[in-house]
Simulated scan of single mutants.
Amino acid sequence: MNFKNISVILMSLALILISMSSQAGTIPGIAGVYDTIPGEEFKYDGKTVEVVEFMSFYCHTCYNFESSIPVIRGNFPNKIKWKTVPVYWGEHGSPKPGEAYLLAEETGKGEEMKKALFEAQMVQKRNIGDIGVLESIGKKLGLGSDFSKNLRSGKKAEDIQKGMDMAKAYGLNETPTLIIAGNIKTDSHKLEHNLDAFRQNIIAILRGILKK
């Protein structure tokens, strides 16, 4: 392990410990940096934990966070149910990439679409709000004519709006934000947007829940 890696780890741990000093104890036995959502119940069946990720395909932090998801899930094999809820922020985005993701998810190609959308937006600098661009991505992924038809008709528009309404109800103001076990809300803001610290924080929260 080189000095740079050690420095990153120490910085991440320091951020978590500092933040935990003011946040710990929100739910007995569950450490970490988080808020609980008023009016929402803590849900854990003793077997699996649901993690709902609110994200945007226009969000650089969401793009960078992608590599952390397999690491988080890998710490708890078969114990995490991960759900992705795509949102967008007003005039700075479009609901269409999210609709494309949900349509692809129905066919079992949600992860492929997620990766392709981020690649198009962040690397290729394409306009993923453009129907033609989304159709070309769908074609490359092997999605048929139904994908284009459903994308153009707005089949998933209502689902996107439901996600937006849920985000508003939960008081979300940035992405990615995770809702864990029904009422635990965490994002990278309180960790100064340090994604290494954010990843470790999520693991700490999940570890606390799964030990209950």
Rank of each mutant, 00 (worst) to 15 (best):
N2I: 11
F3K: 14
K4T: 15
S7T: 10
S7G: 01
S12F: 09
S12K: 11
S12I: 05
L15W: 08
I16K: 02
S19H: 02
S19D: 04
S21Q: 09
Q23K: 14
A24G: 00
A24H: 06
G25D: 01
G25H: 01
G25V: 00
G25P: 02
I27T: 00
I27S: 05
G29F: 10
A31Y: 06
G32W: 04
V33L: 00
E40Y: 13
E41N: 04
E41L: 11
D45Q: 04
G46V: 09
G46Y: 03
T48I: 13
T48S: 12
E50S: 13
E50K: 15
F54M: 08
Y58I: 05
C59Y: 00
H60I: 15
Y63V: 02
N64W: 01
N64P: 01
S67K: 15
S67A: 13
S67Y: 03
I69P: 06
N75L: 10
P77H: 12
P77F: 11
P77S: 07
N78A: 12
N78E: 15
I80F: 11
K81A: 09
W82I: 06
T84K: 13
V85L: 06
V87H: 03
W89Q: 12
W89L: 11
G90P: 03
H92Y: 12
S94Q: 07
P95Q: 07
P97V: 00
P97F: 09
Y101E: 02
L102N: 09
A104G: 10
E105Y: 11
E105N: 03
E105M: 08
E106S: 02
G108H: 02
K109M: 09
K109C: 05
K109V: 07
M113E: 11
K114C: 01
A116T: 05
L117I: 10
L117V: 12
Q121G: 05
Q121W: 12
V123E: 14
V123G: 01
K125F: 08
R126N: 11
N127V: 13
N127D: 15
G129F: 04
I131S: 13
G132E: 14
G132H: 09
E135R: 11
E135V: 15
K139N: 15
K139Y: 12
K140E: 15
L143R: 14
S145Y: 01
F147Q: 05
S148F: 07
S153Q: 14
G154M: 04
A157Y: 07
E158T: 12
D159Y: 02
I160D: 08
Q161L: 14
Q161D: 13
K162P: 10
G163V: 08
D165K: 06
A169Y: 04
Y170K: 00
G171T: 02
L172A: 05
T175A: 13
T175Q: 07
L178Q: 01
L178F: 11
I184L: 09
I184F: 06
K185C: 04
K185V: 05
D187P: 07
H189Y: 08
K190W: 07
L191V: 03
L191R: 05
E192T: 04
D196E: 15
A197M: 11
F198S: 02
F198W: 12
R199N: 04
R199H: 08
Q200N: 14
Q200P: 01
N201Q: 10
A204D: 10
I205P: 06
G208Y: 11
L210Y: 07
L210F: 08
K212T: 05
